[in-house]
Amino acid sequence: MAEAATATRGHAEGETRRDFIYLAAAGMGVVGAGAVAWPFISFMNPSADVLALSTTEVDLKPVQEGMSITVTWRGKPVFVRKRTKAEIDTAAATKLSDLPDPQADAARAKKPEWLILVGVCTHLGCVPLGQKTADPKGEYGGWFCPCHGSHYDTSGRIRKGPAPKNLEVPPYAFLDDTTIRIG
């Protein structure tokens, strides 16, 4: 490159400078186009009022053992389940090698009896069944997604079907023994 420039010095010098101007102008053009495009791209991301609605508080007092409730957080259903002893034991006893997305039950619940999950199938976003007593709970006694047939266990972990990941555990904190804040 440098050699070529030296070899053609003189006559071609103006052309080299012109090339530089072309490249610099095109480069600035790209930067400018990006600067203009960014507000439009960002425009479509969640707005401040949507972000402001990102916590939900839940009173756990009315929830009995073996019972589930569904609350809304960020427009999505969140499953809150007070698990039975048998469910906790089954979840804890499951070998990690049996899981497509290995995760210990203890890592998914801050208090073993309270399981808090985003009730959105990790495949394509349907709401799995299993919150109501009469619902099908799948082959592993947890939740079952009717859309494409994913089975979740009593820890909300994927066991069978097309979903790649376990049901997501949202960020939450116990404000006191019977109240949690999700988000």
């Binding site: 479509m44 991301n45 969640p46 707005s47 949507v50 960020r74 427009g75 999505k76």
Partner: peptide, 13 residues
């Protein structure tokens, strides 16, 4: 997906 939705689920945006 969040960008497509303009939120955290399919909603008004």
């Amino acid at each position: 997906v969040t960008w497509l939705w303009g939120g955290f689920s399919v909603d008004n945006p």
